[in-house]
């Protein structure tokens, strides 16, 4: 089995993995970071979104071995001390989550979106979230949260 070394939420990790192990399986089962979720099998729902070297990717559509040498951030890495970051806080303030299952992926995508475009319009946010499906909220409060989170992150 190949051995990989990578940084996950700031921690240096070296592990053996099978070639076929998906990054999301590695994160959830090997590293026990269960905040990253699996909601589909056709790369559409976005619940598994993590950051790979600062960019949002779907961890169900990447092999763990491909992350060798990379820096990965998962939802657990955003609030290591339990204090919500401004985007997480905005989701809470705007009721941008209900069941919470899509939420980690949604927030990881939102953080990347705001990093690419710190002052997005509502249309840009709605379009920018097209790789993430939420079945609970009707998106309205998610969009409000991302716009507000972006503002808080700017200041």
């Amino acid at each position: 089995m190949p051995e990989i070394s990578l940084t996950v939420n700031g921690e240096q990790i070296t592990k053996s993995v099978e070639g076929r192990t998906l990054l999301v399986e590695f994160i959830r089962e090997t590293l026990k970071l269960t905040g990253t979720h699996i909601g589909c099998d056709t790369s559409q729902c976005g619940a598994c979104t993590v950051h790979l070297n600062g960019k949002a990717v779907k961890s169900c559509t990447m092999l763990a071995v491909q992350a060798d040498g990379a820096e990965i951030t998962t939802i657990e890495g955003l609030a290591p001390d339990g204090r919500l970051n401004p985007m997480q806080q905005a989701f809470k303030d705007h009721h941008g989550l209900q069941c919470g299952f899509c939420t980690p992926g949604m927030i990881m995508r939102a953080m990347a979106l705001v990093a690419e475009n710190p002052e997005p319009t509502e249309t840009e946010v709605r379009h920018g979230l097209e790789g993430n499906i939420c079945r609970c909220t009707g998106y309205q409060n998610i969009v409000a949260a991302v716009l507000d989170g972006a503002k808080a992150l700017r200041s």
């Binding site: 976005g46 790979l52 949002a56 990717v57 779907k58 995508r109 790789g131 993430n132």
Partner: peptide
């Protein structure tokens, strides 16, 4: 193409 996450890979 696809969505933002797909375009990153």
């Amino acid at each position: 193409i696809g969505d933002a996450q797909v375009r990153n890979r």
